[in-house]
Design a protein around this nucleic acid. Structure first.
Lengths: 343, 343
DNA sequence: CTGAAAGCGCTTACAG
DNA sequence: CTGAAAGCGCTTACAG
């Protein structure tokens, strides 16, 4: 039991001295080199245990040019979902002896600055980016010429040799439209989550194509812009219900806005689903406890995180030249509850 | 504009060569030493810009024995609140040129292992721990003899020279009890969040003392154990409503359980608040959009994170011998809405 | 199988 | 004000 924490770091030299070997040998047992006599190995390992020795990460990193840490960039927006994704990433990464360096950014300039610092400062071996707002036409371009593995979550950057992990938002949304259509709805409104948000945009695309595919009332524009908050869902619904003719169903791009929509319906004395069907997206934990229980699309956030970590680890192990460009699309499942009006 | 990212890291040597000075001089301008002629400084800075040079963190860390990174340990439980706290910490820390290395743990053994790795591996300069489950009697003891600054969130470890940041759960809970009592309730039930959870326990203490301080119906035990999830709040409420006499109000230790309780009341055809008042704790974003809108206690999570980061930065700057033991208690504010029945 | 030595990219007394 | 040199704690050819 070592007891002098803090004051003086124990180094490989201390171990070497006590075990009566050279630092090279200690390093070899540390790195499981096969060229160490097993008696020596045992002796050294005992001393390592006794001294509670852990190699200095900076020294190892300086030599190996590997930090065993992965950078994680996520948006400043405080969405509940990031916590879950991070948990999923962390679990898998830490089981595989990798650390996570996180940072959040609220705009592109900050993002680039952070990434640059991480990469050029040699702080990370790979980068996982959650940037739902890096969607298409807003011109987001991070410097992608780094030679480290990149995993993108919820954005289509299409960087060569990178892995992109996407939710199958589009198909889930069209299926939701089909469901609503089968229930007889012809005037289905959509509350958007933000033009530059990838997930919101894909859900919107699915909505639009659903509107074309299924019988609808003419050329009504029933799309209102929200921002993923309950309050924006509330406001959007108030606005939509002023339309003439009114929509008979609302598809909110996430559950928080759907919850705001339900509250707005109540404020307007409309019964959900009898007067107005409302559906969401995400399946947050409270969705089943709303009144009425919310019909939505389940998003497996931990699994998303796990897949990102898995992809990262795999790329970390493969030679840069052998890395492929991959796109992983996670199929999504409906959760039919009461708010849509099916029984 | 450098364009050879990745392949070859630019080092201080490259800068020195181009600027026609020694590496020592480059290092001096990097560290804002005053003993550099301003002409030299400018020339070097220009080259640094041109080469987009950022010092290798491992090399700097190895020399300085400072990593400019703070470790952040949080529980595996996927609570929404951690995301907010992390945002608060990150914002302040990154503005002050510090990184965050995160990891989550699901038990004490794992926690100790992670911390040990961080500290002895020299990966961090300070440690912020969110461990609401490290409450009192479950014997949690991490090795605290490290000489690095420690900030604890929502747990009372009382480590010397550490900073502890706590919510004023107790007083907020007694005030909530007073509020309920003033509304005429004498049989107030409590849904606990977990015996070993610090916040839950303090809220429970406030509840208990409130039950003593205000007129109540005899010696009824109206406490049921939950686990902070909607479903546990739902179950607890079902159980409580079998009691005879029934409680007239339920105080849930968090909003998620209060939401579950509201749903349970609906299932039992009880009107909230007319038949049963329900209040929560946290003020999550959807609390205002429940039916009825949830009376609760607002918890300023970002501010909590900000305070933790602030304390960390302060301790990082002060000599270990001059560090004091501090406890910061954040006062909490009620949000009276409709679910408690006050109008 | 093991050790002496060089070197990873920085910083910092020490001289000048 | 500036540079040459040592050293932070490791790893890894190179010899033996």
């Amino acid at each position: 039991m070592s007891s002098t924490y803090g004051d003086q770091m124990t180094t490989i030299k201390d171990v070497a001295k006590v075990a009566n070997v050279s630092t090279a040998t200690v390093s070899r047992v540390l790195n499981n080199s096969d060229k160490v006599r097993s008696a020596t190995r045992e002796r050294v390992n005992t001393v390592i245990q006794e001294l509670n020795f852990i190699p200095n990460a900076a020294a190892v990193g300086l030599q190996r040019k590997k930090t065993k840490t992965v950078g994680l960039i996520f948006p400043d927006a405080s969405a509940y979902c990031f916590a879950e994704i991070i948990q999923g990433i962390n679990r898998h990464l830490s089981q595989n002896d990798h650390q996570i360096l996180i940072s959040s950014a609220h705009d592109e300039a900050e993002e680039i600055k952070i990434i640059n610092g991480f990469v050029r400062g040699g702080r990370i071996d790979g980068l996982i980016m959650m940037m739902p707002s890096a969607n298409g036409n807003n011109g987001f371009r991070i410097p992608l010429a780094y030679k480290i593995p990149e995993v993108f979550i919820s954005c289509e950057i299409n960087a060569p040799r990178s892995t992109t992990i996407l939710l199958d938002n589009y198909n889930a949304a069209t299926e939701m439209m089909e469901h609503l259509s089968k229930l007889g709805h012809k005037r289905i409104a959509f509350i958007h989550g933000g033009e530059h948000n990838y997930d919101a945009h894909e859900r919107y695309r699915g909505y639009m194509d659903g509107m074309k595919a299924y019988p609808t009332d003419g050329e009504l524009n029933l799309v209102v812009m929200g921002n993923f908050t309950e309050s924006s869902g509330f406001q959007a619904t108030l606005e939509l219900m002023k339309r003439n003719p009114r929509p008979t169903a609302i598809f909110a791009a996430n559950d928080a806005m759907a919850i705001g929509a339900i509250e707005a319906a109540r404020a307007l004395k409309l019964r959900v689903p009898a007067d107005l069907a409302i559906v969401g997206f995400d399946d947050i934990s409270s969705a089943a406890y709303m009144d009425p229980a919310l019909t939505t699309v389940h998003v497996p956030l931990r699994r998303l995180g796990h897949l990102a970590a898995e992809a990262m680890l795999k790329n970390l192990k493969t030679n840069p030249a052998d890395r492929t460009t991959e796109k992983i699309i996670i199929p999504l499942q409906h959760i039919i509850r009461r708010s849509c009006g099916s029984e």
